[in-house]
Design a protein around this nucleic acid. Structure first.
Length: 486
RNA sequence: GUCUGGGUAGCCAAGUGGUAAGGCGUUGGUCUGCAAAACCAAAAAUCGUGGGUUCGAUUCCCACCCUGGACUCCA
């Protein structure tokens, strides 16, 4: 079987072939660190995390580079508003990024370069473009001359003359201050304004434009051509188009063999974004601070929510969808944490048919929705068997079969980054719910006594009292009961 | 205007030239003093509309309707 990947550049699924056998170089655009990450970011990085995990599972060695944009107008604005330095702001949100992303079980990239670490590479790249006639300097700014690059528009399918400058409503094409020759030209280097952080350069003090950083980091760290370049679908134009223009004009080589883009998270059909203000941060979601769903959401439920849709399609964010994902995760998690016979019985064998179906789904441009169907079938099979054994004392699967099924589920789930969490800690120790365990145990004893004497009104009253305190009581066979936080 | 996606059961969502995975929900059953959980079973989709190609289309083509994203902030 061959892995095929949808390439934005060709608008087709293509068989995946690497530059070097068994090795993959991939670069995904990271965040501009001026605020907390929201669910849209989570979706993107979960998608690339799954791609990376799957490639590794398929036997590739993956070198995955993801940048931090730590020079930017928004970071500057934030720093000014706080009276802090740009670096203080970006450091803070880089920390926040790691905090959120690790909770979602997203593996660390191989490297996390920052723009500020690559100023010399940026200079070299711009210098090269100037020398080759692709860029021009005016008054301390350097612009890319889009008309010089014949392939401009090949990624996004645009032609310069068909674009309407300013259609996005954020730019005034008739801005008298502009020094560009063509409205499509974009800044490689911006001259410093007073009170802004600035770096020395051959064109005077200033700072890099947005697009150049990715070209420079890829060039410096991964070489002229990489296997996979990923990012949000909203970056296709202009960001990735401009990266191509910069890198390919300089090196004469393709920047990336496969361009992959994830779909947007939407809210009520509209893109979740900072500028629309309709975003929910990862932290708020995990900590139960989302007003539409005021309880902590299991991190794995968020992964499940994301992976139940294909990565290229829009994904609508609703309380119902999150609730459904939580339930779905509960099903998988129960199977993953099921009590099994001793594991030593069966080496490391897996169910070949399930693995094959999983792989076929993932090979088809990472069809995680179809892959999850395999996981759910495995999980249900485990639950069914465990239920038979505990409640009916019968069995349909041998111990090795059951363990093999579990091992298959466990391994395939981990390829998707779905890892078991004990139920009790799923909702995390919340200090606002400081429980008096002794008090609970006392009430449970009273209830048990009442039940034994068939004083059901009293036992139900105690159960209601505990429920009101946020404790759910579950009766077990044999007159025993267990409890957990609601 | 230009470029690019999407419209599949109550909701979410895969997929296919021969009437359609999975999840959530719903209904009935088992279990329980009653619940909950779990398990078993079931119901539920003329696959946006209208044409065309075909023995046959939800799947290919055309038109139309609705809708998302991009057009220099964006994951």
């Amino acid at each position: 079987m061959t892995l095929s990947i949808y390439n934005t550049l060709t608008r087709h699924k293509e068989p995946f072939a690497t530059i070097e056998p068994d090795k993959v170089t991939m670069y995904c655009c990271g965040v501009t660190v001026y605020d907390d990450c929201h669910l849209g970011h989570a979706r993107s990085y979960i998608a690339w995390d799954v791609l990376r995990r799957y490639l590794q599972w398929r036997g590739y060695t993956v070198r995955y580079v993801q940048n931090f944009t730590d020079i930017d107008d928004k970071i500057l604005n934030r720093a000014r508003a706080e009276g802090a330095t740009m670096q203080a702001v970006s450091d803070r949100y880089i920390d926040a990024y790691f905090r959120d992303i690790q909770r979602l079980n997203i593996l660390d990239a191989s490297e996390y370069p920052r723009v500020t670490e690559h100023i010399p590479d940026i200079h070299a790249l711009i210098q090269g473009l100037v020398e080759k006639g692709y860029a021009y300097a005016t008054d301390g700014d350097v612009y890319y001359n889009v008309e010089q690059f014949g392939d401009y528009g090949k990624l996004s399918g645009r032609q310069l003359e068909q674009m309407q400058a300013g259609a996005g409503g954020r730019v005034d094409p008739n801005d008298p201050d502009r020094k560009k020759r063509n409205s499509s030209d974009f800044a490689l280097w911006k001259s410093a304004k007073p009170d802004e952080p600035a770096w020395e350069s051959p064109w005077g003090m200033g700072r890099p434009g947005w697009h150049i950083e990715c070209s420079a980091m890829i060039w410096a760290r991964l070489g002229e051509t990489i296997d996979i370049h990923g990012g949000g679908g909203d970056l296709v134009f202009p960001h990735h188009e401009n990266e191509i223009a910069q890198s390919e004009a300089l090196t004469g080589q393709p920047l990336a063999r496969y361009w992959m883009h994830n779909g947007m998270v939407t809210v009520g059909g509209e893109k979740m974004s900072k500028s629309l203000g309709n975003f929910t941060t990862i932290q708020a979601l995990l900590d139960g601070q989302w007003p539409d769903y005021p309880q902590p959401v299991a991190p794995m439920a968020i992964r499940l929510f994301v992976l139940q849709a294909h990565y290229r399609k829009p994904l609508d964010f609703t309380p119902m969808a999150i609730a459904a994902a939580e339930k779905g995760w509960h099903t998988l998690n129960s199977a993953l944490t099921a009590e099994l016979p001793s594991h030593e019985l069966s080496g490391n064998t897996l169910e070949a048919e399930s693995v094959q179906r999983f792989q076929a789904a993932m090979d088809d441009d990472l069809n995680t929705a179809a892959a999850l169907a395999v996981l759910f079938e495995l999980a249900k099979s485990i639950q069914r068997e465990v239920n038979r054994r505990t409640h009916q004392s019968t069995r349909q699967l041998s111990d090795p079969q059951l363990i093999t099924t579990w091992q298959t589920l466990s391994q395939l789930a981990s390829v998707l980054g779905l890892e078991a969490q004990p139920e009790s800690t799923a909702s995390s120790p919340d200090s606002s719910l400081d429980l008096d365990v002794a008090w609970v145990e006392t009430l449970l004893h009273q209830r048990q006594a009442a039940r034994q004497e068939k004083h059901y009104a009293e036992s139900d009253r105690i159960r209601d009292e505990l429920q009101a305190a946020g404790i759910t009581v579950v009766d077990l066979p044999g007159g025993k009961a267990e409890w957990h936080r609601s």
